[in-house]
Design a protein around this nucleic acid. Structure first.
Length: 538
DNA sequence: CACTCCCGGA
């Protein structure tokens, strides 16, 4: 694998074969030793490997790039390309540096920059690039035009996308696909479908886009039909189906598709495994999750898991209640990202390890990590479930005033829960009155739940009125109110509420749990003990 | 030299 002679002309093919950070570093070291670092073509290839061929080596690429005194256009394009994929905002700042260095972007640069805008949903920035492109006359380049169509369509500006699409230039399969994806993203499935049918020639990618469009709308029968029609599928087609089933909680079907994928000889990739892990986490099937974890260990026997896979494993174990295993993964990670912290903080919080959750949060802060809104959901859940009223209030304040995060409905819900559980029902009501956003039914239900715990009929009625005002006939609300009366021994009124439920046709759903049994079959209904009746709306 | 459209998400 490593070249033996110093034949420079053979290098490119070798460089591009660098697939791991390790081999990349070996190459780099070799270049330093043999004095190739001043050779522009060797540098280009090393930069190419670290930006494009090796996943997650962008940081390395950027460091390398910073040491090059006068990078040429190819080098700028290469490093922007790598950044646009992994750290899109870095791609944008690289472009500013490029302009300042007096290097003019070309028809290769702009597609990368537009991809970065697309990933960041930066339509304003994208339009600025559009203006630059028009001025430089590059709009006629089909790659640039397609990247523009995609950027506008992805950012929801379908008028701008259509203007290019319907323009004088011929549009190819990529332009069609970008338009279809744009309509699908907006939820306009029928338009997407119509375009797909009008399309003169379809390729695998356009089919994958349409399969995804159906799957995201929960139209799994349509997705399946199209999927079955595609003669040669790729890993994306399979992943789209698996993700679709996961999305609508058809966990068993997701696993079936995975099985079929295996039989078809398609190799799963990281996305496949991430979908499966989140499926197991949602369904609470730990033993399947563990088996996937086992397969992963075989697949990545050396070098450990990516951050994302590790995060998914933390989430899996935390949601399945095996907090020890979640912590084990967490501790074993060499590199962490914000989701890692969020997963473990949230996981500990919902499983009753309130103090540990808060301690890890404090650790995180001590290590100069910047928490986001999801971190604070975990922290506030820990406080409310742990009855830590003062801490909860302090963190709620900290979130807004130190980190500039506007509370969302989940944060408010946690606070209402926090106050309510602690019996501060009046304060909770007052808190809801002062919320900056419209309280939803989750908020009122949280309060109603607290009223039930503390047996406060007066406030429970008020909370229920608010719920009714939302014309929400969900059974849980009535059940809770009925329970409030019942807990106070007011059986007649409890009965009245139940009767009201019947009159309004409210049906209490049968509780169902996804239970794993022998590791092969799944039950989608709870196991019933003989002689035990499942109550339905009574 | 290369580039544009698809798969997950605490």
């Amino acid at each position: 694998m490593i070249r033996k002679s110093g034949d420079k002309r053979r290098q490119p093919a070798v460089w591009r074969r660098c697939r791991t950070l390790r081999s990349l570093k070996q190459m780099h070291a070799l270049m330093v030793v043999r004095g190739f670092l001043s050779d522009a073509s060797s540098l280009r290839e090393l930069l190419f490997s670290s930006s494009v061929s090796v996943a997650g080596a962008v940081t390395y690429a950027l460091q390398l790039f910073d040491q090059i005194p006068h990078p040429d256009l190819f080098m700028w394009n290469t490093v922007i390309r790598g950044a646009s994929h992994w750290t899109p905002s870095a791609a944008i700042s690289l472009f500013s540096r490029m302009e300042r260095a007096g290097v003019r972007p070309d028809n290769i640069t702009f597609p990368f920059l537009l991809r970065a805008c697309t990933k960041l949903s930066e339509s304003f920035l994208g339009s600025q690039f559009h203006a630059k492109i028009t001025k430089s006359g590059l709009e006629s380049d089909s790659f640039v035009r397609n990247a523009l169509i995609n950027m506008h369509a992805s950012c929801g500006d379908l008028a701008a996308a259509s203007a290019l699409f319907d323009g004088p230039a011929r549009h190819d399969v990529v332009a069609w696909s970008a338009m279809i994806a744009g309509y699908a993203r907006r939820g306009e499935l029928s338009v997407a479908r119509q375009l797909f049918e009008e399309m003169p020639s379809k390729d695998l990618i356009s089919c994958n886009i349409m399969i995804t469009a159906y799957a995201k709308q929960g139209e799994m029968a349509m997705a399946r039909q199209l999927f079955d029609q595609v003669p040669v599928k790729d890993v994306v087609s399979w992943n789209a189906m698996i993700a679709g089933y996961v999305h609508c909680s058809e966990h068993r079907r997701a696993l079936e598709v995975f099985e079929q994928m295996h039989l078809a000889g398609e190799q799963p990739d990281e996305v496949t495994m991430l979908s499966l892990l989140s499926s197991c986490a949602d369904a609470g099937v730990m033993d399947v999750g563990r088996r996937i974890h086992g397969s992963l260990m075989e697949m990545c026997s050396r070098g450990g898991f990516s951050i994302r896979l590790s995060n998914a494993l933390i989430d899996l174990y935390a949601k399945c209640g095996s907090i020890e295993r979640a912590i084990e993964i967490f501790v074993g990670m060499r590199e962490k990202d914000l989701s890692t912290w969020n997963s473990i903080i949230g996981g500990l919080a919902v499983h009753g390890h309130f103090r540990d959750s808060i301690n890890i949060f404090e650790n995180m802060i001590g290590m100069k990590w910047r928490p986001d809104e999801i971190t604070f959901v975990g922290v506030l859940v820990a406080c409310s479930h742990g009855g830590m009223v003062e801490e909860g209030k302090r963190y709620f304040y900290l979130m807004q005033n130190k980190y500039g995060i506007e509370p969302n409905v989940k944060h408010y819900g946690c606070m209402v829960d926090l106050l309510g559980r602690a019996g501060l029902l009046e304060e909770a009501f007052e808190f809801i009155d002062h919320m900056k956003i419209e309280p939803n039914r989750i908020i009122w239900r949280a309060l109603l739940g607290s009223c039930r715990i503390h047996g406060n009929v007066r406030l429970a009625e008020r909370a229920n009125e608010e719920l009714l005002r939302m014309r929400n006939h969900a059974s849980g609300d009535y059940v809770l109110l009925s329970n409030v009366y019942a807990s106070r021994g007011e059986w007649c009124r409890a009965e009245q509420v139940r009767k009201l439920m019947d009159d309004r046709g409210v049906i209490k759903e049968i509780g169902s749990t996804l239970l794993d049994t022998d590791g092969k079959n799944f039950n989608f209904m709870p196991k019933r003990k003989p002689g035990l009746r499942i109550n339905v709306a009574a």
